[in-house]
Amino acid sequence: MSVRLTQWPLPKCWVLDANILFSPWCRVWVQTLAHHAGATLAWTSVIEEECYRNLVRLGRLHADDAQAERLSLASRCSAQVLPPERVEPYKADVRAVDDKDRHVAAAALSLKHARAEPVALLTWNIRDFPKRPLAKLGVLRFSPDELPGELGLEGSLLMQLLDRSAKNLQAELLAYPHANPTDYQAQARPLPHSSEEWAAFLQRNRLHLTAKCAGIRIL
């Protein structure tokens, strides 16, 4: 059974932190959920630059492939990329967030004001984004693992979406092949197909609540 963690409906605009974009699987999973929920995605050029700088620094992506991927990422995701000047004025309003992450919360707040409705902020670093102060501003913070419960997804439907995400990622890898594969990419494990493989995959990717909603038991 899925369990909702908040009293508010999930917003229709989701701002993605750099750590969401960092993992192709996580990004595509969030894209799949957004499409199912009728939500739109957004981030800033600063968030995007942070993501790809770290991918190159850690040897996960070749610099040339990183540049090519950045040029197509927003269109792949049908996402809005905000310029820094649009976000900067809102940093003073999100001082509850650590200085290094304030630009992410400011981006969400700027969209909240532009849309005149709450906006979701998706991040793995939930401790860096205090939930209550942001909620008072109309910015609702979630981790990717919380999304299925917030959307009321469970059982076979959730498994269908997980399978669809794996197919979407595979299709993207075929449509946008990397010209300079890294050792990290060469050693990547195959995407899961069976329930046993999904159990191990969800555990590795810290999607414990998702596994519970899907009825998958993990250790």
Rank of each mutant, 00 (worst) to 15 (best):
Q80M: 14
G215K: 07
W43T: 02
A186S: 12
L158Q: 04
E154F: 03
A74V: 06
S23C: 07
W198K: 01
A105R: 04
S23N: 11
L21C: 01
P24C: 02
M1A: 14
G155P: 02
G152N: 07
N54R: 12
T32S: 06
L151S: 03
A135V: 03
S45C: 11
E172W: 13
L191D: 11
P118E: 10
L122R: 01
D99F: 14
A68M: 11
E196L: 14
L5H: 10
F22I: 00
E88Y: 13
T210C: 14
S72Q: 15
L61P: 06
T210P: 06
H35G: 04
S2M: 10
L82P: 00
A166D: 00
Q80C: 11
P181K: 01
G152C: 02
R76P: 02
A179Y: 05
D101C: 09
K100A: 15
R102A: 14
F142M: 07
G149S: 09
R204G: 03
V119M: 12
P89D: 09
A135P: 05
S143E: 02
R204L: 06
E150Q: 13
L207N: 00
S165T: 15
A42M: 03
F22T: 00
L169I: 07
D99P: 06
P24Y: 06
Q31H: 00
R4H: 05
F22W: 09
P133K: 05
H62W: 03
C51L: 01
L207V: 07
G38C: 06
P84R: 09
A186M: 13
R76H: 13
Q185I: 04
H178M: 09
R57D: 08
L157S: 00
A108M: 09
W29E: 04
R141E: 10
R141S: 14
A175K: 11
S143A: 15
R141C: 15
A116Y: 05
P9T: 11
Y52S: 06
R164A: 08
L140M: 11
I20P: 01
R76W: 14
T40G: 08
L140R: 12
D145G: 07
A39I: 12
I218D: 05
A135C: 06
L191I: 07
V119T: 13
T32Q: 08
N125E: 12
M1P: 11
A116F: 07
L109E: 10
R60Q: 09
V87M: 11
W25S: 02
L161I: 01
S2P: 13
R217H: 13
Y184W: 15
L82Y: 07
K212S: 12
E197H: 06
E85L: 10
T210E: 00
Q185R: 03
L134P: 08
R86D: 12
R60L: 14
Y90N: 07
K91C: 14
A106L: 02
L140K: 06
L21S: 03
I216M: 01
H178P: 06
L219M: 12
A166T: 08
Y52L: 10
H193K: 09
A37E: 00
A188S: 10
L41D: 01
R4W: 00
